[in-house]
């Protein structure tokens, strides 16, 4: 592949809470190339959002990063000064959050908020007119009708789908290199979600930005990304080109997960993978999936498998394939 934009290597993130230490990320390996579209899927609580928050360096106060590196164009984000990371957030990487309502301030108009983002995203000294022009331009890009009027509106006056589009517009302004979309449109209806996903797909294509699309609804990433990571309990367990992953998953967790998704073709839903996501205070040693795995071997209990290539860009962290 081409040049790497983000390279996460052996990243650990813990959270300190009253009961003890939650060992959430457990040596995450993750890469996004320039102009690459990557999906990240996994059930809630598997660490998807924690991983992406580490990239933006917006982890909660009680988070600790004991080990690991996140390279942005070869430089470690975790070691950057506050100014540098601020600049990256303003100009290069941006994130769309799950809940479009929470991301917009209800007491300012859409125009105020959008123009603020525009002002800080560039070093040029823009006049008010120029900022407004740019704001209208991005609103047009996200296919919002009548952008002039929308600029004057308060968030509450707009529908959920429109708010999500505005969040995308705001993210696009500062996402010159990478857009991280955390479950975009999950709270919205399927027909609206479908439109939002198609919109994001078109925009990243046109602008040549990379994208990381996070989702727990497995199907949503399928039509949009080149490569998909599967995450389980703080580890990347499998990564493969999209088509290959969906047609031939090989990690026992991925196989189990795909089976339990209800299919449009019908035929019932196979019984779920037994057990549940481990307790992060005392996670299992070795492979975190082994207590639930039907192929568990003695080695799985002792050692943690690392991502190994099985050819064709398909990697899996499982002793079955070593």
């Amino acid at each position: 592949m081409n040049e790497q934009l983000i390279e996460i290597h052996d990243l650990y993130v813990n959270y300190k809470i009253y009961e003890g230490i939650l060992k959430v990320l457990n040596g995450v390996e993750f890469r996004v190339g320039v102009k690459e579209k990557v999906g990240l899927i996994g059930e809630s609580g598997c660490g998807k959002t924690t991983t992406m928050r580490s990239v933006m360096r917006i982890l909660a106060d009680n988070a600790i990063v004991p080990k690991g590196s996140i390279l942005y164009k070869g430089r470690d984000i975790l070691k950057m000064s506050e100014e540098e990371i601020q600049r990256i957030r303003r100009e290069s990487i941006s994130m769309i959050f799950q809940d479009p309502t929470a991301a917009l301030n209800p007491v300012f108009t859409v125009g105020d908020q959008l123009m603020d983002v525009i002002k800080y995203s560039t070093k040029e000294n823009l006049t008010k007119e120029e900022m407004k022009e740019r704001a209208i331009k991005v609103l047009k890009e996200v296919a919002l009708p009548d952008p002039e009027r929308i600029l004057k509106n308060y968030p509450i006056m707009l529908s959920g789908g429109m708010r999500q589009r505005i969040c995308i517009a705001m993210a696009l302004v500062s996402a010159n290199e990478l857009l991280i979309a955390d479950e975009p449109g999950t709270n919205l209806d399927v027909t609206i979600q479908d439109q939002i996903l198609r919109l994001i797909g078109r925009l990243v294509e046109e602008r040549g930005t990379s994208i990381i699309l996070i989702s727990h609804a497995l199907g949503t990433v399928k039509g949009l990304v080149d490569r998909v990571y599967v995450m389980y309990a703080g580890n990347m367990v499998e990564v493969a080109p999209t088509k290959e992953l969906f047609s031939e998953p090989i990690h026992p967790y991925t196989i189990g997960l795909f089976k339990t998704v209800p299919k449009l073709t019908g035929g019932g839903i196979p019984e779920a993978i037994k057990g549940r996501i481990p307790d992060y205070i005392n996670p299992p040693q070795g492979c975190r999936f082994f207590p639930r795995c039907e192929h568990a071997m003695p080695i799985c209990k002792k050692e943690k498998p690392s991502l190994k290539s099985v050819g064709g860009g398909h990697e899996v962290a499982c002793f079955l394939y070593e």
Binding site: Q193, K222, T265
Partner: peptide, 17 residues
């Protein structure tokens, strides 16, 4: 329209949309 918007994971499902 609803059916065409459903996110699916297999090729057989894709054919139904």
């Amino acid at each position: 329209m609803l059916l065409s918007s459903v996110p699916v994971i297999t090729e057989e499902e894709e054919k139904l949309k």
